[in-house]
Amino acid sequence: MQPSNSKPQWNELEFVSWKEFMQMAPSIIQLEISRIGSVINAPATNLDIRNVLVRARFELREFQECLQLADGPPLGDPCVAHLRTSILSLSIRNQIRDKETTITLDYVFDRLISMLERIDLIFQAD
C-alpha cells in the first residue's frame, strides 16, 4: 500500500535554465536564511521551536553549499534532501502563535516550496 502523492502538472513556462537558476537561487536562499535567522532571535518562540528553526536554517545553508559545488542539472537527491528537510522543519510554523512570525515563516515556506518545484524543471542550455 502506498499513500497517494499527486504531483502538480508542470507548466512549460516554468522551465528554467541552469544559468538562470544559479542567478536566482543563491540570493533567494541567502535572504531566506536571514529571515529564518531573524525569527530564531525573535520573541514568542520557545526552545523547541527555536531548535527546529535552527535546523531549517542549517539545512538551507547545507543546500546553499551543495548548490555552489554543483556543475549542472540534475541536482543530486542528497543535495535536494537538504532543501526538503528545511521546508519540513518550517512546517513548525503552524505551532507558532505570534502572527508576525507566522507570516514571515509562511513567506519563507512558500519561497522554498516554489524553488523545490523549480528544481525538477531546470535544464542545461547548450
Binding site: 500500500m1 499513500p3 526538503r84 521546508i87 519540513l88 503552524n94 516550496i113 523545490l116
Partner: peptide, 22 residues
C-alpha cells in the same frame, strides 16, 4: 509498502508538506 496506520499518520500532515514528508 506502508501500513494503514502509517498512511493515516502521514495524512495528518499539512497539505503543503505531505509530499515532502513522504
Amino acid at each position: 509498502t506502508w501500513t494503514e496506520e502509517a498512511t493515516a499518520v502521514l495524512n495528518t500532515a499539512p497539505d503543503g508538506v505531505r509530499g515532502i514528508a513522504r
